[in-house]
Nucleic acid binder design. Sequence first.
DNA 1: AAATATAACGAAAACGGTTTCGTGTTAATA
DNA 2: TATTAACACGAAACCGTTTTCGTTATATTT
Lengths: 339, 339
Amino acid sequence: MKAKITLKDIARELEVSISTVSKALKNSEEISRDTKDKVQAFAKLYNYKPNNIAISLKNKRTKNIGVVIPDIVHHFFTTVIRGIEKYANARGYNVIVCLSEESFDKEVINMEMLANGSIDGFIMSLSSETQEKSDYNHLKEVTEQGIPVVLFDRITNEVDCDKVIIDDELGAYQATNKFIDQGKKKIALITTDDYLSVSKARTKGYRKALEESNLGIDESMILKMPSMEMDELAIKTFLNEKEPDAVLCVNEIFAVYSMRLVQEKGLKIPEDIAFIGFTDGVLSKYANPSLTVVAQHGEKMGEVSAKMLIDKVESEAEEETYQTKILEPTLVIRDSIAH
Amino acid sequence: MKAKITLKDIARELEVSISTVSKALKNSEEISRDTKDKVQAFAKLYNYKPNNIAISLKNKRTKNIGVVIPDIVHHFFTTVIRGIEKYANARGYNVIVCLSEESFDKEVINMEMLANGSIDGFIMSLSSETQEKSDYNHLKEVTEQGIPVVLFDRITNEVDCDKVIIDDELGAYQATNKFIDQGKKKIALITTDDYLSVSKARTKGYRKALEESNLGIDESMILKMPSMEMDELAIKTFLNEKEPDAVLCVNEIFAVYSMRLVQEKGLKIPEDIAFIGFTDGVLSKYANPSLTVVAQHGEKMGEVSAKMLIDKVESEAEEETYQTKILEPTLVIRDSIAH
DNA sequence: AAATATAACGAAAACGGTTTCGTGTTAATA
DNA sequence: TATTAACACGAAACCGTTTTCGTTATATTT
């Protein structure tokens, strides 16, 4: 086991000072050609690489970014991470991933762990518990300390920071209009509770489309799941009783599960009943029939978030100006609707 | 913006030395009750938290673990990360995630980035390119430097380190036997190229089961995808020509896609043709019919890997003894086979 | 020859902690 | 009263860098 070599080691071996070694490796003009050659050759031979931690301490820059998300076993978040990771890596940053598991406390603990020097900034999506409690003090504290934060997808307006979202309202609006255009009359919505910022926006878009049409809104055509989990019985009862001819679901799982239920009843998709979901994951692609979805472009979202964060981290100026980027969703047409 | 407070700040304000503050905060016996109270109260008031980087530099311990995986948009890897993250977090460690994207070069670069002090150890799964090239020098260099490595799932025997795998051979063996027990005669295998350690093991288990039965092996019943990507046409042709009555697939996607193909032909699952896949992801659960799979217990694998790594990191002893943990797969029975 | 410029390098501080060792003061002991 | 022990604290080294500011030769200028 050969331990890592340090500047001090090189200095000792070559009988020069540590400062000389440091400068020589940086090709400083101060150092003679001879010495530089000697030092650089030695460093290469022993595969010298500066210690990241020491550099971090010196520069007060870690080149790490902290990503705090509710869950990782969700296609959408996964794609966002991938976008973040790719972009960040290209700019020399590493990504530390922390999971809040939809828990407020874990979110707080994770942020505190990372906020003490481990990272240069945060990219995060709020846990449902945090959104439910509307307690954002942990975020405010961090921003007050001058640590940049980018919020994506599940955001709040109570914190001053950069934000990236997709236009969920528009996505739902377009999806609902698609149904309307295709002559659907009984358009249902299966969603989660409103405290989730995204569900709220999607519900709004759904309502808007219906209000603008001559169909009007039937409140009983909206099914709200109390938790993030799927209540299979609730969906079954709902579909049986309301007999919609089109269903908009706020995620893939609700949609795919619902499709199976109605197929078991002998209904034809999309003739008898059409479906549109949110999130363009594997499920939508490989479902039978394949599911039309409002694609959220998670990877793009990750890239944009990472760019915003790193730009802020690296900007000298202490601008207190924040922006919110709104990405356009796109409807990915598949076989669960007519086309 | 209130900047973080340091020991030095506290020392200045309270007119004591930095050492005294440090000791007081650690409740050292050396320091008087009075001083400790004073310091601790002040620290709490100003929300003092020690700087992680400084501590890392001093201790030569970062409390970070590096996870290098081929891809994150794969259910299996995602669950592994979750297992790692949960376990590591509980022991006070953070997880830095790097994606090799199945590229040898990226794997090398990522490891080099992290190996210079950023992490205490690696947990990784090899990229397909690395397995194809059989070049493991980057791993050997790291282990020679005394940085612990745990390899999971996609491993190699050429590197001395701890390893965690599931018994892929056993999983395939059991799945194939399940088909045999149910009277299936023409059992096909859809897999990827053999350089992937897991595909190889699964193929072996498949062969073993068939050899032990009186069915024997028909090489033409094995379809090997050249890349990781799915060649839809190849599958279609294969299924049409060989007309198997049971298909074992090395992942979910191959299986779900195949199921759709045969359903379009009017075949009944599982009566006419049965399916078993690998990886217990969303796809299997929500496919129609739901897919029987060999569950790989990714989360468990992550936990075990993290435990092995952290135990090694924290053990003083420089034991050069490595173990390979083999996790048992389980067959999750769903509607794609008779039951 | 004296003054000055330049080249090449080293000492030391700094980043923010931890820890060892020393030291001055007071109290207990001989 | 002199010696010792206990107590409470500070100085300084250390982790591995970077960087400023000397400092010493040597070379150039007047």
